Simulated scan of single mutants.
Amino acid sequence: MLTADGVKTACVTGGNGYIASALVKLLLEKGYAVKATVRNPDDTEKNSHLKELQALGPLEILRADLDQEGSFDEAVAGCDYAFLVAAPVNLTSENPEKDQIEPSVGGTLNVMRSCAKAGTVRRVVLTSAASSVCIRPLEGDGHVLDEESWSDLEWVTAEKPPSWGYVVSKVLSEKEALRLAQEHGISLVIACPVLTVGASPVPKVYTSVPASLSMLSGDEAALGMLKGIEKTFGGVPIVDLDDLCRAEVFLAETETTASGRYICSSFTTTIVEIARFLARKYPQYSVNVGNDSSGELLEKPRVCLSSAKLVEEGFEFRYKTLDEIYQDVVEYGKALGILPY
């Protein structure tokens, strides 16, 4: 619903998060009025960077909770677009069903119902994850997966790979969102981003950025996460945060043709390739490019996640090489204090 002065309005859930706050910034820069939801608007530590974005344009910060039915009604009322980014992440829970899967699916449906109720939302963009696409047994090399591929939940729940509850939560959230969208006549697109790195307004980040910088920072736990991605994904698929946010806005605005799921991946690499690149580009960090005696690391990716559908729709990635990706994230890592210099 256009505002009185013809400005389009967008709601972004989980507005103070890593992806969401970058999305809020982009929308404001594009001239949108934005309504961002957070659990507790009074939490200065978690929201100060979001409040700073109010200097860019009309940004309202509203209280909403994924667990509470109807708590997103006010946030999506009158909006043209709704970007569903908020999602629980509880990777170490001993009860993934209760702590990860149920809250994810329930939260997604809560926001979707609010969108149906609003009656003004022209398109919903759900941020999922590529782990809904590719976690399945794949023998050999050369696999190319697209949006028709789903992670094998039977195999995932039997084998219980790392963060298996997260994988299940993403698949079920997508499927339930698609079902409810069809039921209520909601136009829905789903973005499935891979390992997302790059600069965000957020002053503190977890997981993807420290993982991508782990060979420079020496953070063994973060490197362990990167190794886990390579093992379960059959490579290290990467997208820059700026490209992901631009893709989500593109998918919202391309109303006539865009539909269903979209993998968002600039390219797929390996830890070995990243290490060699970093050693050349940043010699001051003494990156270890020694041979992997354990045999765990890949020389080349076994699996490629294809973004052909997104590109055919007319989207163009800006960050297409390790050089472009790392220039962005290294500067961000320095600003966050993850890297010393």
Rank of each mutant, 00 (worst) to 15 (best):
N16W: 10
L66M: 13
Q54H: 03
V194M: 06
V133F: 03
A130H: 14
N40T: 11
R123D: 10
K46C: 04
E331I: 05
V105F: 03
T232G: 07
A181R: 07
L305Q: 09
K334M: 04
D243A: 14
P210S: 09
V124N: 05
T92R: 10
E183D: 13
E273W: 00
L27V: 04
L138P: 11
R276K: 13
Q182G: 15
N95E: 11
V167W: 03
W150P: 01
P340Y: 02
A308W: 07
K309G: 05
L251R: 06
S208F: 03
G14C: 08
S149T: 13
L27H: 02
F315G: 10
V236I: 13
L50A: 08
G260C: 12
G165D: 02
L305D: 09
S259Q: 13
Y81K: 04
C192A: 05
G6L: 11
D80P: 04
L62M: 15
V330F: 11
Y206T: 12
S286C: 04
Y326C: 06
P301V: 05
Y18P: 09
V202R: 14
S259K: 15
L26K: 10
G337T: 09
L339W: 05
F233G: 07
S169T: 02
M112N: 05
K227E: 15
S151P: 00
Q68S: 13
S48N: 10
S212D: 03
A86F: 05
T257L: 12
L27P: 12
A199K: 06
A130D: 14
T3H: 10
P237F: 05
I271G: 02
E139D: 13
N110M: 00
E74P: 08
P301K: 14
K170P: 01
D243Q: 14
C115I: 15
E74N: 11
V311F: 06
K175S: 08
D242Q: 14
E69N: 12
V85Y: 03
T3P: 13
G290D: 13
S71Y: 09
K117R: 15
